[in-house]
Computed example of a mutant assay.
Amino acid sequence: MVNRRGTLIGLGGLVAGGGALIGTGAFTTVTAERTVNVQTAGDANAFLALGPADRDGNGNNAYVADPGDGTVEIALDGSNTGASGLNQNARTTFRNLITVTNNGTQAVESLTLTMSVSTGNGNGNGNAGVDANDTFEFTVSPAGGNSSEGPVANGNDILTGNNSIPDTLNSGSSINFGLVVDLLAGGNNGGNLPGGLSYTLTIEARTANSN
């Protein structure tokens, strides 16, 4: 069950009147307070819902974990499969990892996925020894479908340029995306991923009226 936290924020509005004010309803300033109820929701129930994609037709997905805080976590370390990790000097594709659902009222016109890498000590990509743009790409497929498009370059819109994927994600619609990890020899990584790195996936959805 998703835990929700409600926060009450008091907003004060100030209106200043200048010049000659005429009539019995004239005033100089008005200060009014209103209450706004703001709450957060877990990934499964947010405006942009994120959940494990159905990989086998029975709702199972060994590569997406629930850390227990209402979010989802892609786990490619083999911890849920009995393996020890990715193949070295290989290009590995994981299709249908995450299902993205638009629970908002407006169509999403772009959905950008960006993988970033850090050493976990505050250093950025340049000090990690891994070029995220050379290492990671994405696949995209219709939710519940078998066809798959891609790869889509790191930091690009997955709704653009794919034949079987609509250019917009309408309200109530879903798509799946997956991840490609390229560790072929000759790349910047030397065919391997160094230990002690932290990986972050940023998902940015934009509507026609993104404000």
Rank of each mutant, 00 (worst) to 15 (best):
S148I: 12
T112D: 04
S174M: 08
T200Y: 04
T101I: 06
A46I: 11
T31F: 09
G51F: 01
M1R: 10
G155V: 14
A16E: 09
S147M: 05
L183V: 10
S116W: 02
L48P: 03
D56A: 05
S84D: 09
S171F: 07
T135P: 06
V64N: 02
T81N: 04
R91H: 04
G172Q: 05
S79A: 12
G78C: 09
G12N: 11
G42T: 12
Q39G: 15
E204H: 06
G145E: 01
A26V: 11
N102D: 07
G104S: 08
I158E: 02
G191P: 05
V72Y: 01
N89S: 14
Q39K: 05
T101D: 02
D54Y: 02
V181A: 04
T35Q: 13
P52W: 03
Y199S: 02
I158R: 00
G196H: 02
N156I: 05
E137F: 07
A75N: 10
A107L: 00
L169W: 02
D131C: 07
G186H: 03
S141I: 08
N89L: 14
G17E: 01
N96S: 10
S116A: 09
L21R: 07
I165V: 11
F136C: 06
R4P: 11
V152T: 05
A185K: 10
D182V: 14
G150L: 06
L159W: 00
E109R: 14
G161C: 12
R91Q: 13
